[in-house]
Design a protein around this nucleic acid. Structure first.
Lengths: 222, 222
DNA sequence: ATAGCTGTCTAACGTTTGTTAGGTCAACAT
DNA sequence: ATGTTGACCTAACAAACGTTAGACAGCTAT
């Protein structure tokens, strides 16, 4: 049932991708691009096929239905941002300041959403339009990812870094909503993901903005 | 902008709604409901007509195209939440605490989005899927509404209630994103709009949560 | 050489979509 | 009585949709 990574654990070399595997991957890539920019209903199998260089009917050699493609894209998208955030958190020392963890997670999420993976934003956009069966298949992936943020928020609350009297759920909904709405307004030329991540983290915390440790243009005040 | 209030004022000076006007309004109401829950492409003229009790072709007596309906719903939706927020702000004394203004605006926005008007949420959901012509027609309405929030954020910044070093734009995008994502997770049985409004306002501000003031007549200004 | 598998093609199918043309029928004005 | 208008209907149109069946070229293994 896994869509991609299964051959990754092969013993010696790279998976030796066959022609069929490459087509299958290209179909998913194209589907993710169309789903991201046009949504579920406006993404047609003929569009996808055309982008891959084959005919619409040929898709059915690789997938049983449109919804199977959509489900694969959506689940890969959630797993992808899950992995990205987990990796970003693991790159920090376990005892790191929860504020830094929050900012790292926000940065990873925004990167996945806005410039790294069509899959993540495709899943986000197509979810509410997809048939119930597809959404149901995606639910475990989504829950697993939400749990990451719930843990993060829990740490913040325990460190007393969030406004008092605000439920953990509200904070999680706030941070996810704030990020997930960004595809609606983000323009690569106009916004910097790095800057946005820092600003969003600062907004969500009670305390002042964190000291600027690694880089860029953060201090235009003072 | 009136959303429902069917025979609100039977007085002599009311417009005397004709049968055609009522049909037109019912078409828009039904379109808003479908657009809200199913989005642009999954909302069909036959669905709308069926909900009103007429046939699909008859819609063209009232509207020139599907997109004209969508544009009307979208623009009414933005104007509706604009009016609601403006009214909520005007109900406050001009010199009111900016924190209170923020909370009032958030509450009004959430109410418009989640339980008062199908139009507002319909416009939000359908916007990115609608043809460019429809989006272009909606842009002035959206800009006017954004300006309200920009003014609100400006007040907050001037009162030093926001984290320092964070741009006004980031704050505005944060608060709007946080609210506009709520249709994705809000469940009326599970969440309370009043509570959410207070929590979101608290999250966005540097200071502690505001004291719960029982009555507005007290002079709290020192 | 032959058989089989892989990956794609052509060509259609049944359905649904937005839209249009022309008809119908009651209410009203003359 | 007659003509006009308002509001709706029927019936279709072309296009586009997801999907399917069957054919066909290229490769591999016998």
């Amino acid at each position: 049932m896994k869509t991609r990574g299964q051959a990754a654990a092969l013993q010696t070399d790279e998976p030796e991708e066959s022609a069929g595997d490459r087509s299958r991957r290209e179909i998913l890539d194209a589907a993710a691009r169309f789903l991201r920019s046009h949504g579920y209903h406006a993404t047609t199998l003929r569009d996808i096929a055309g982008a891959v260089g084959i005919k619409a009917g040929s898709i059915y050699y690789h997938f049983a239905s449109k919804d199977e493609i959509v489900a694969a894209v959506m689940n890969d998208g959630v797993d992808s941002v899950f992995d990205a955030v987990q990796a970003a958190l693991r790159a920090l020392p376990k005892t790191a300041d929860p504020r830094r963890k929050l900012e790292a997670a926000i940065r990873a999420h925004l990167h996945a959403l806005l410039d790294r993976s069509d899959y993540t934003s495709a899943g986000l956009k197509a979810y509410s339009d997809a048939p119930e069966a597809v959404r149901q298949a995606a639910r475990p992936h989504r829950r697993r990812y939400e749990a990451v943020w719930d843990g993060l928020v829990r740490e913040l609350v325990q460190a007393d870094l969030t406004p008092r009297g605000v439920s953990r759920e509200a904070i999680r909904l706030a941070v996810l909503g704030l990020m997930n709405w960004s595809p609606e307004w983000y323009r690569p030329r106009r916004h910097s993901i790095e800057t946005l991540a820092g600003e969003f983290a600062a907004i969500l915390l009670r305390a002042e903005r964190m000291p600027v440790r690694p880089r860029p243009t953060a201090a235009q005040r003072s």
